[in-house]
Simulated scan of single mutants.
Amino acid sequence: MSRHHPPSPPTRSDHVPRKRFGQHFLRDAAVIGRIVQAIAPQPGQRLVEIGPGEGALTLPLLRATGALTVIELDRDLIPRIAAGTAALGKVEIIHADVLTVDFTALAAGAPLRVVGNLPYNISSPILFHCIDHLDAIEDMHFMLQKEVVERMAAAPGSKAYGRLSVMLQLACRVEPLIEVPPAAFRPPPKVDSAVVRLRPRPRAERPLDVQATLERLVRAAFGQRRKTLANALEGIAGTGQIEAAGIDPRTRAEQVAVGAYVALARVIERDTDPG
């Protein structure tokens, strides 16, 4: 991971969005204003922006806080960011794939507020990466594909409810905020977008004691969502264990509440504990 502060902007006026980076640059001033208002940045806060792009959010956030860290993978955008922000405040530019960035080390004990218009092609891996560093994060505000936000906030029984719903809701309070049409971007994506706020739950509310078992359990359950839970979890949890957690083994994964998955993970761990 390298940090760059190049001195001069590129000569061309418009950066050509790159498909391989999933780039869609936000350009609607009204939408930008609403997002910044939702984030409500304050001086002295540790803000980190993932994928600043052309600076649509970077500039108003920097004006509000006076300092900002940005993570950008596209080398060609880095000089633009450095030049465009030079007069507004202190910007640390991290040239890296966000999935390689250690947010815990970056926070250095001061919780981060993480924001970003996430590349839709890798949004789920980024969300899970942030969960891995949740103790270093105060809150998150992300622009995502609207369908992904619906999955994040989905309740049991809905088609949108899945692994992402369970794992994120166990880690954070999920609050969809703003719907954003394709026309707000350059180039317009082929899908609607939405902004979501994630507030990490206190450690006492997160099932950290059974995290590994829970991840394996939920992945298996939703990996074969057409099957009954008893069949989908064959080799992981027996019918008796599923019943002991208060779940009907004949139900399917999308019908099981978040808390019930935690209960089942605890039953599995209890039964496998040699002590």
Rank of each mutant, 00 (worst) to 15 (best):
A171T: 10
Q241L: 00
A204M: 08
P187W: 13
T69P: 01
V114C: 06
L59Q: 04
L77T: 02
V191Y: 10
G109W: 12
L233G: 00
D28M: 08
D132H: 13
M140H: 10
D14Y: 15
K146Y: 04
S124H: 12
P188H: 05
G51P: 03
E175G: 03
F21A: 01
V166F: 08
G246V: 08
F103H: 05
E54M: 14
Q37A: 15
G238K: 07
V195L: 11
R12Q: 09
F21R: 05
T251N: 10
A154F: 04
H141G: 00
A230L: 05
P188N: 01
I93K: 02
R46D: 08
G44L: 07
H24A: 10
A160P: 05
I35F: 14
K90Y: 08
T100A: 15
F103Y: 05
K159D: 05
T239G: 15
A38M: 13
Q241M: 03
Y261T: 03
P79Q: 02
L47D: 03
Y161R: 07
Q211N: 09
P249D: 05
R226D: 02
T85K: 07
T58Y: 14
A154E: 03
V180G: 07
L73Y: 09
A40F: 13
A154P: 00
A107F: 08
P125Y: 13
P188T: 00
A105L: 06
L170K: 01
I94H: 03
K19W: 13
M143T: 15
V16G: 02
